[in-house]
């Protein structure tokens, strides 16, 4: 049982929740940019939350398989077409478990947002490297040989489901954890004492095209105080750095472990999933938040995701 990659999409990588415990040796966390969405996609197909999934970016891949399987896509709304081996053709909804016969899945271009996570029942079978199946693109290891998918790749499944299915099936319910989170609301951040930290909030920023999984590069009126040399110290996904050109960088999951640019603060954990959905050219605003509120919001987000997970499990059990 395996997935054949007919077209890789723009940047499709194998990810789980990422690596822990090796940051002191320079090993990045990597992992899904929105671990909640990846965990939920796994829940929907009955996988452990940290099973390996595909992270798709802007333009999704085309995948083919020869036996029935179960998948789920969470994250940005995404056009999905399925052609059964029998010739029947249909569109598929996101945010719910899909039982599919042998056929070809075409993930098109995202209409809004930038990323989604595709879970396959059984979980993707790639080697565990340093405790994780995530692709470390900068280190060149993990996932599928440390690189994005290519045409012709074949991905195995750890525990292929034994299901019978002759036509696509899905339940009437679905989940959308980003529902109710207005996409245009300011991203909240906890400022440092750096003099430019408060200035992040005063203007509109735009996401530069050079952004990637390592960081979102913002463009706007240059912030002052960038020239002061800082001594290298730990950074984390969410850290906002100020490089010499005065245009801030918000680090994401592939962030290096230490950095020498002045630190202006960090985007709060509860808003990290929204960072994952920003695409080049998107406008955004930042608003300051105190650390205690940030942690309370992170806790509330974890509770909410746990509740959604339980609701999904009970629906699946009663199906």
């Amino acid at each position: 049982m395996s997935l054949h990659v007919l077209a890789p999409g723009l940047l499709t990588t194998v990810q789980d929740r990422g690596r822990e415990g090796w940051r002191h040796l320079g090993v990045a966390r990597a992992g899904a940019l929105d671990p909640f969405a990846a965990a939920l996609a796994n829940r929907l197909v009955g996988n452990p939350e940290d099973a390996a999934v595909l992270e798709i970016t802007l333009l999704g891949p085309t995948l083919q398989w020869a036996q029935p399987l179960r998948i789920a896509l969470c994250g940005a709304p995404w056009p999905m077409r399925f052609e059964a081996a029998s010739g029947a053709d249909c569109t598929l909804p996101t945010g719910r478990p899909l039982a599919l016969p042998a056929g070809t899945l075409r993930l098109g271009a995202a209409r809004e947002g930038a990323r989604a996570w595709l879970a396959v029942a059984g979980g993707l079978d790639v080697p565990v490297v340093l405790g994780s199946r995530s692709t470390d693109l900068r280190g060149g290891f993990g996932g599928l040989d440390g690189r994005p998918l290519r045409r012709g790749d074949v991905l195995g499944l750890l525990a292929p489901p034994d299901i019978a299915c002759t036509a696509p099936r899905h339940p009437a319910w679905w989940v959308d954890p980003l529902a109710g989170a207005p996409r245009t609301a300011p991203l909240r951040y906890v400022p440092t004492s750096h003099p430019a930290a408060a200035r992040l909030a005063g203007q509109d920023w735009r996401v530069q095209a050079s952004s990637d999984r390592q960081g979102l590069r913002l463009a706007g009126a240059a912030l002052p105080g960038a020239s002061g040399s800082a001594i290298s110290e730990a950074v984390a996904p969410g850290t906002i750095q100020l490089p010499p050109d005065g245009q801030p960088i918000v680090l994401l999951a592939d962030a290096q472990t230490v950095g020498g640019y002045p630190r202006l603060g960090h985007v709060i954990a509860a808003d990290l999933p929204r960072l994952a959905q920003l695409r080049p050219g998107d406008a955004l605003r930042l608003s300051p938040c105190d650390a205690a509120t940030a942690r309370a919001l992170a806790c509330a987000a974890r509770v909410r995701m746990a509740r959604i997970g339980l609701a999904v499990a009970s629906r699946l059990a009663s199906a």
Partner: peptide, 14 residues
């Protein structure tokens, strides 16, 4: 404890 990141004059504690 998830991670400890020592640098020249600081330690990141995850």
């Amino acid at each position: 404890l998830r991670d400890l990141v020592p640098a020249y004059a600081s330690v990141g504690v995850f």
